[in-house]
Design a binder for these strands. Structure first.
Lengths: 197, 197
DNA sequence: GTATAAACTTACCACTTGGTAAGTTGTCAA
DNA sequence: TTGACAACTTACCAAGTGGTAAGTTTATAC
């Protein structure tokens, strides 16, 4: 792969990502993405061949991003790395919800399309990291994955509820909620210090 | 409202619900919904006027369903009712994920449309019930809502991950996961017995 | 029997969609 | 100067979209 950061292809994928995240696969149109890029939709078709192929590359890029966010997480011990990963995921999904939207939309669409799940490498890496912590070293895969899914689920759900929560209770009330949410996440992650119960 | 259960309008809303849940607002077409009902799309337009209005009624029906699932939950004490509600939500969203899909799709679309959130009555009722338990009677709204969102988030996230989890690890492995997930949910609900920490 | 209204259908329309085919422009190596 | 290639554009199309207008069928009320 010899494309540098501002290669047209990567630029296209980046913009397409944000549009797919915002509107979903079907509501996003090639013409709409192209408009945002200042080109015609045929420019997109020239590079990717079809809308479906473009979407696949968007998911591939998402997978790479998530995977590298695990591989490059700061921390000296697995415990610290795992904790940092979840904290970073939480703030990232609140500040830039695009990736979270992309994941959830892909999950919802997968209910019917049932292709192979592109985020498996990410999940496996996360599971492997968690297995290295003392809290989860002895646990079964099922227990471990349920714990992971629980955390990711509440993080992502809170992130996409952001807009409606603000709408229902106001921005100030949401700020309090966000603080509390962060505190509860830290509390859940503090359990990593404990021995397996 | 004098429409009985098999009134055409409620039949249409029910079928539209499942299609909107499966495909999302934009990918669902009036013609597609009508086909599934054995009528033409003009039958739908005759009753609802527009696709957007039909979707609104679908969300209204969803809201009513969720609200009545709280109001009619079994249990003598608020603790028991709250516990039963979450357990029932968990099994329902695994067996019939349509409503969960509908909620999450609406949340994702609300990121940009920012209309008033139709499920507020449900959330408020859930909050009111939780406030009656001894565990949460003294707590702040923020703590309470974060706890609720955490539970709902992990329940819904697990429900829509069902398909991909089966695809990645097989049906047998998922059965184990589901058991573990249910056990962890029960454990979290057991905390209701405790005093506020 | 006739009027009325509910529950539709057929016919049509303007517009948007993803996609094809064929050309244009700019850059750079030989 | 020429050839080749990447990065596009203009022109076009068949299929599908939500929506309008006008009719048709069916049951019920008087």
């Amino acid at each position: 792969m010899d494309q540098h950061a501002d290669s047209p292809k990567t630029r296209y994928i980046s913009t397409a990502s944000s549009v797919f995240a915002e509107k979903g696969y079907n509501a996003a149109s090639l013409a709409g993405i192209a408009d945002k890029l200042g080109v015609t939709k045929q420019a997109l078709l020239h590079f990717f061949g079809s809308k479906a192929a473009l979407y696949e590359e968007v998911l591939k890029a998402l997978s790479d991003r998530l995977l590298s966010s695990i591989q490059n997480v700061e921390g000296t011990s697995p415990d610290e790395q795992l904790r940092n990963f979840f904290l970073q995921l939480s703030t990232a999904s609140l500040e830039k919800p695009a990736d979270t939207q992309l994941v959830l939309r892909a999950l919802l669409d997968a209910q019917v399309s049932s292709e192979s799940w592109p985020l498996k490498p990410f999940l496996d890496a996360l599971g492997a990291l968690a297995h290295k912590t003392k809290r989860w070293s002895q646990a079964s895969d099922a227990e471990l994955f349920c714990w992971i899914y629980q955390l990711i689920g509440s993080i992502q759900h809170f992130a996409i509820s952001q807009v409606t929560l603000k709408g229902m209770y106001g921005t100030e009330a949401f700020d309090v909620l966000r603080e509390t949410h962060s505190a509860q996440l830290r509390a859940a992650l503090a359990d990593l210090e404990k021995d397996p119960s």
